[in-house]
Structures are given as C-alpha cells and as structure tokens.
C-alpha cells in the first residue's frame, strides 16, 4: 500500500518534470523541471532500497550536472525563449519523432515481455544479509563496492579514462589559439 503510494507520487514527479522539460519555453524552467524528474527517479531508487544509487543520483545529476547547465545558461545569457520556427538542422525533427516512437515501442515491448517475470521480493538481492540473517545496515553499499572494484574493475577504469579524455578534449576545443601560433600560421 505504502509502496504504491510512493510509486504514484514519484511517477507523477518524473512524468511532470519530463513534460515540463519539453513544454517550458524558458531554458531555466526546463532545467528546473529536469531536477524534478531526477528527484522523482531518486525517490523510486529509495523505494527499491537502492539507497546508494539514490544518493549518487542527487549528488551527481541534480547537484553537479544540472548546476552546470544552469551555470552555462546564466553565464552565456541564453536565457531567452527560443524561436521554434528556425530549424538549424533539417533532419533533426523527423529523426527525433522516429527515435521517440522507437524508444516508446521498446519500453512497451519490454514491459510486455517481462509481464510474467517475478518481481524482486523484499530482501532479495538489494538487501544484504549478515551472518546472523539480519540485514546489514549499509550492506547494500558494501556489496556494490565489492562488485564494482573486483568483477567490473576494468569497465570502471575504462569509464574513468573516457571521462578524462572528455575533459581533456573539452579543454583543447575551448582553448583559444595562442597569438604566437597564429602568427606562425600567417607568415
């Protein structure tokens, strides 16, 4: 009963936020709606006892990424409504329509295929039990860490390398060419 109530509220947050992102004309309002969605997802994580994921969701996505979105919007002063008639990239809209229909179909198919699967019962998988059979207070996090740093350590390290490459690439792209280099190219 409680779980259903939490699910309804969180799902309303997620959907409301998602619709808000699309509908709001103002980039800042869209970013705020995105935060609402992210919080809704965090609540759903908590309801599934994935506490660590919920915390990371809030810290990384709501706390860092959307803050950077807002920061860029404010710093560059693009906070005025976009003119929707101008289409800089012709194929974008038909492509977007196709992708959204495809993703919707994928989700519907996934739900349809998995309708007979067993749902995870409480204490099944996510709640880690100690030697005495009682759940460990933060066993979930410890199990996650053990998994991440032993079985999946290669994927983990590769992801961090990817992030470093992204950062270095951004710095290189954003760097203005030095005057000396320009002169060399000119002469």
């Amino acid at each position: 009963m409680m779980e259903l109530f939490v699910f309804i509220v969180a799902a309303a947050m997620v959907l409301g936020g998602a619709i808000g992102v699309i509908v709001s004309k103002h980039p800042v309002h869209a970013a705020l709606s995105l935060i609402l969605t992210l919080f809704g997802v965090a609540v759903l994580f908590v309801a599934q006892e994935a506490n660590f994921l919920a915390a990371v969701q809030v810290i990384v996505y709501a706390g860092a990424i959307v803050v950077l979105f807002l920061f860029v919007i404010m710093l560059l002063g693009v906070d005025n409504a976009e003119n929707l008639r101008i289409e800089p990239f012709k194929i974008q809209r038909p492509l977007a329509a196709f992708v959204s229909v495809a993703v919707f179909g994928l989700v519907v198919t996934a739900v349809f295929v998995a309708r007979n699967a067993n749902t995870a019962a409480k204490g099944n998988g996510l709640e880690v039990l100690g030697d005495d059979g009682a759940p460990i207070h933060d066993g979930n996090i410890k199990a996650l860490a053990r998994d991440l740093f032993s079985d999946h350590v290669l994927a983990f390290e590769l992801t961090s390398v990817l992030l470093v490459i992204a950062v270095v690439g951004t710095v290189l792209l954003a760097r203005k060419p030095r005057k000396a280099d320009l002169q060399e190219a000119g002469s």
């Binding site: 506490n51 660590f52 919920a54 915390a55 990371v56 809030v58 810290i59 709501a62 706390g63 860092a64 803050v67 207070h137 933060d138 979930n140 996090i141």
Partner: peptide, 12 residues
C-alpha cells in the same frame, strides 16, 4: 545507511 552522502547531496 547512506548517512554522510545525504550531507553531500543536501549541500549540493
């Protein structure tokens, strides 16, 4: 169980 992570989340 997430304890201090909640502090980080709130400060962000």
């Amino acid at each position: 169980p997430i304890g201090v992570l909640l502090l980080l989340a709130l400060s962000s």
